[in-house]
Amino acid sequence: MAKAILFDSTKCTACRGCQVACKQWNNLEAEETVNTGTYENPPDLSSRTWLKMRFIEPPDGDGKVWLFSRRACMHCTEAGCVKVCPTGAVYHHEEGFVAYNKDICSGCGYCVDACPFDVPRMVGSTLTGKKKMEKCVFCADRVANEEKPACVKTCPTGALIYGERTEMVDLAEQRVSKLAADGVDAQLYGKDELDGLHVLYVLAHSPKDYKLPVNPEVSPSVTLWQDILKVMGYAAVGAVAGGLLLNYMVARARMVKEKEGK
């Protein structure tokens, strides 16, 4: 059964326990950062930062809104990274989230470009050219051992919860209608986006205000490559090979005949 993380932005206090929990469990080193006039840091996801919280002050607001949003892998069902990954290193875990097998990651980095949320990051040595993709792994080992993902476990307010995706959708919908009843322009993000994300968001404003893409989609080029071009390639090679085989048989038969005819 598919699992999901539900992030309820209306309950998040941006304590960032999740951000450190992610580093703690996954042994990710700290980055050197500077303050650029915001509480938000590191500035972006990286091979060492798989999860970060965004602090958003709407520029036209009255100073009475401070939005916090989670930025990490969305674990899409229609996942650009899975689709584009040439080696199968990035794949859908049987519980629905996007896992990856580092061992067979070739470091091509196509997933970085195929992700509609700009999540995967490459890390490598400039000397050897070796590279690996890094991103949130949904704490696959914890999940397999009936532990919650590290970020979810550490969340004090229940802004992050984890469970069966269907249940998470139900809870999120209940929360949205509760908030709507209180006059909040709440919405659920991730239920249908990309055939369903495995990280669902309850938002109190439009996704845009949380810097989330409004209609995320996997680039048509990914589909073109994986679903059309590759098939075409196999077909073309098959057809050519077949043609040549046929030619060989026919030509050879003919030559035998010629010889006999002589």
Binding site: G88, Y91, H93, E94, E95, A99, N101, D103, I104, A140, D141, R142, A144, N145, E147, K230, V231, Y234, A235, A236, V237, G238, A239, A241, G242, G243, L245, L246
Partner: peptide, 26 residues
């Protein structure tokens, strides 16, 4: 022949067996 190519493709496209299945150790 084309179908043969595609059949081969299907085989080759099969996802590798998940190294991180549910009985993963912590």
């Amino acid at each position: 022949a084309t179908a043969g190519g595609l059949a081969a493709a299907k085989m080759l496209e099969a996802q590798p067996v998940s190294a991180e299945s549910l009985d993963l150790e912590l």
